[in-house]
């Protein structure tokens, strides 16, 4: 069945965001809202966790919040 989604939560999409600028987990979740991806909240958390573990991005604290980022 076709699931409507205009945003896809993929490793490549996350990689592109993190190369552009450091982001918190909350920033990333805003980019992949469930109403845009068609995924459930639980799926979103699980998939994003797996992607971040694979990408293993650099981490830094900005304004006391952990941000992830990647360099090309």
């Amino acid at each position: 069945t076709h699931i409507h989604s205009d945003v896809q939560l993929t490793e490549e999409a996350v990689r592109r965001y993190l190369i552009r600028k450091p982001m918190t987990t909350k920033d990333l979740l805003k980019k992949f809202q469930t109403k845009r991806t068609g995924l459930s909240s639980e799926q979103t958390v699980n998939v994003l966790a797996q992607i971040l573990k694979r990408l293993n991005p650099e981490r830094k604290n900005v304004n006391d919040k952990m941000h992830f980022y990647l360099t090309e």
Binding site: T25, L29, V45
Partner: peptide, 20 residues
Amino acid sequence: SSSEADEMAAALDAELNDFI
């Protein structure tokens, strides 16, 4: 809702903290 977003962020942070 923002509280759902907060819960999701907390769950994701917890998953990733286990990984560190």
